[in-house]
């Protein structure tokens, strides 16, 4: 299984089309919507995390492009300032993908950037502001 975090930009005429549901159904992918909105220019913007086989991801995204949706890799990353993190645990229940998790034995909070989908919810929820967005 592989994961991809991508930004999908829909032109105006595709907003009503069920592109994503087809993508998920026909290519057997798991979808995690990180952010969705319609811009003032009526362009649709969807930031998603996709999980599936490497082949299905490749084909599915190629098909999505063919529909006229611009597909770009998600360029931003959330990083942790290790010196700033206090291991308090305020982020644990905020993170939707368990990229931030606690090791029960030591009670230390770990950050698995592979599981992070850059939703950025942890950034303002971290009291010492150890979580940062990098472009």
């Amino acid at each position: 299984m592989a994961t991809r975090r991508v930004v999908l930009r829909y032109p105006r005429h595709l907003i009503d089309e069920p592109v994503v549901s087809h993508l998920v159904k026909n290519y057997d992918l798991e979808l995690n919507i990180l952010r969705a909105n319609i811009t003032p220019e009526s362009e649709g913007l969807l930031v998603v995390g996709l999980e599936g086989s490497e082949e299905n991801l490749r084909q599915g995204l190629a098909w999505t492009r063919d529909q006229g949706v611009a597909v770009e890799p998600l360029e931003r990353d959330v990083v942790r300032d290790e010196d700033r993190c206090n291991h308090c645990g305020a982020c644990l229940t905020i993170c939707p993908t368990e990229a931030l998790y606690r090791e029960v034995a030591t009670q230390e909070v770990h950050f698995d950037s592979d599981r992070c989908v850059a939703c950025e919810l942890c950034v303002p929820a971290c009291p010492p502001r150890a979580m940062k967005v990098e472009f």
Binding site: N86, H87, C88, G89, A90, C91, T93, P127
Partner: peptide
């Protein structure tokens, strides 16, 4: 219900 905390146990230790 998942739990989070504000007090750091590793730092207390």
């Amino acid at each position: 219900v998942p739990t989070g905390s504000l007090s750091s146990y590793p730092k207390a230790r």
